[in-house]
């Protein structure tokens, strides 16, 4: 790892100031992705801005028909939160399967969503639940936020503050993990919110995406059988030593079926 300066601001305003003043500064929260990336020298920040002391980024609370989760919420906190378990049990269940115990004790929802790793779990929940990303500057709809592999609508220096999840009638998640790395090979998050069905696929493509044919099928008939006949096009999906695009396309349908079954 190259050396860098370390800052730990106490307020959101101070963090934004530090990040805006230096285009080569990087924010860090749990660091479970950033630190491995820095060890590989994939990134050379001049300074690292530790967000963990910022109270404005904390908290999990129910606000009417929304669940608002602060960017600093660790995976273990989302997995065990009574508010999350009551409002969106599929989200708590997902959080409890990210990485391993030690990663869940450090990694945060804000970090995972802002990083937008194609094999990450949270992006499919954010997209499937039609969540809103709240930053220090604006509110961004999930459909506009994710822009492909490791790319989001966040501008340099802009910080993710919280995520607002509308509370669905039904939601479910299923994933196939790589047996060695445990990263997602293909995952599906299905949700019915205010009568509208959304299906978000992670792991299979270069970024999380909506499977609109499955959404139509589930709108007509909410059941695992409804998606069983919907084939995912392999074109554009990831192909690597762990699985071909065709295999991942097959997994998308299987995971969508399981996600609907999990949603009940």
């Amino acid at each position: 790892m190259y050396d860098f300066e370390y800052h730990k601001p106490g307020s959101l305003a101070d963090a934004v100031k530090l990040l805006s003043a230096d285009p080569d500064a990087r924010p860090i929260s749990g660091g479970q992705t950033l630190l491995p990336a820095l060890k590989h020298r994939l990134n050379k920040p001049t300074s690292v801005v530790d967000l963990s002391g910022i109270a404005e980024l904390r908290g999990i609370k129910r606000e009417g028909n929304k669940l608002v989760i602060g960017a600093l919420a660790k995976h273990v906190e989302v997995a065990t939160s009574p508010e999350v378990k009551a409002a969106i049990p599929a989200l708590a269940q997902m959080a409890g399967t990210i990485g391993d115990t030690q990663v869940r004790n450090r990694g945060t929802i804000g970090g995972s969503v802002a990083n937008n790793d194609p094999a990450a779990d949270y992006p499919s929940a954010v997209l499937g639940l039609n969540a809103t990303i709240v930053t220090d500057k604006r509110r961004i709809a999930a459909d506009d936020f994710f822009q492909g592999m490791f790319t989001t609508a966040l501008e340099p220096g802009e910080l993710l503050v919280a995520i607002e999840f509308p509370i669905p009638e039904k939601a479910g998640y299923a994933k196939m993990r790589n047996p060695a790395s445990r990263y997602v090979m293909a995952g599906a998050f299905v949700a019915k919110t205010g009568g509208a069905v959304r299906v978000a696929i992670n792991g299979a493509g270069p970024g999380v995406f909506r499977q609109t044919e499955m959404e139509k099928a589930l709108t007509a008939n909410w059941s695992p059988d409804a998606v069983a006949g919907v084939k995912q096009d392999a074109d554009g999906l990831n192909s690597d030593i762990h699985g071909s695009a065709e295999y991942r396309a097959h997994l998308v349908t299987v995971m969508a079926k399981r996600a609907v079954a999990n949603a009940g």
Binding site: I28, L35, V48, V103, R106
Partner: peptide
């Protein structure tokens, strides 16, 4: 419990 190789 945390992985001490992945925390500054």
């Amino acid at each position: 419990s945390v992985k001490a190789c992945t925390i500054l």
